[in-house]
Amino acid sequence: MNRNTILVATMAVATLGTTTQSCLALATSSVGLAVLKQILLGGITKGLNIFSDKDSFLANQLIDAALPQQLKDLNSTLQKLGLNSLVQKEKEYIARAAAFTVETSKPILVNAVNSLTADDAARIIQGGSGAATQILRERTSEQLMAAIAPKVDAKLNEFGLVSSLNSALSGTNLLGGLFGNQNSTSSVTGGLSRFASQQMVNGLFNIIENHEKQNQTAILNSLTSVK
């Protein structure tokens, strides 16, 4: 390697280091942090708007991708028994229940976004695509589950989902087997509600992360335009 090549390589490394430091400085500025919060809040609004509409919830692939394995197994079992209409009813009941979680989920997520700090912004920039949503997920997942699960449970009970499933399965313990060999109706209902709540929480984060990734270029452009 000749002297000129070494000089060029050294300058490139120095430039990269300066660029990285500049991005971090911009990201952790008040304007940069505001841009990151705006992107996350946009994803939250988008997700909760989908949750508010049953048909949008049912049609969303990111929510469908969040379906827990236990509900996949339940639906597969029902389909094998020729109970496709019951599978559709179950999905519609869960979608209807999701709409009742919006007002509970919103303040939890918004408060978490508004609490982001300059240190969080630095971690997000260094973490790359999806890092902002990951921080939000870490800080709110358990709180969201604890807050919405009772609402989901109440709604699924109101809709009579477990009763419909038990009637269709002629009193067998197929539901209990799928949900951990639970025998009592209340245990099965709780299991079903818990898995439905997991789908909602994970589906919502899928939507927020997708929104973040779609706006990754906008984030960088906004940060680099800060003077």
Rank of each mutant, 00 (worst) to 15 (best):
L86K: 08
F51E: 01
T133Y: 01
D119F: 05
K46Q: 15
V110Q: 14
G160V: 05
A65I: 05
F57N: 08
L165I: 06
A118G: 11
Q79N: 14
I148W: 00
T133I: 05
S76F: 07
D119T: 14
V87P: 01
N114K: 13
Q143E: 11
T117E: 12
L144P: 02
S52R: 11
I124D: 00
I108C: 01
A146C: 01
Q70G: 10
S85P: 01
F100S: 15
N49H: 12
D53P: 06
A149C: 11
P107Y: 12
L81M: 12
Q126R: 14
I44K: 06
S76P: 05
T45Y: 12
A65M: 08
P68T: 04
N60P: 03
N60F: 04
T117D: 08
E138A: 09
N75A: 14
L67M: 13
A147M: 00
R139D: 07
L109P: 02
I50N: 04
A154C: 06
N166S: 15
V110T: 13
A131I: 02
Q70T: 14
L81P: 01
L165F: 09
I50G: 06
I108L: 13
A122T: 11
Q143L: 06
P150W: 08
I94E: 04
Q143M: 00
K151E: 12
E90I: 05
L136T: 01
L165A: 06
V152L: 00
V113S: 04
K80Q: 15
K151S: 11
S56C: 09
A147C: 00
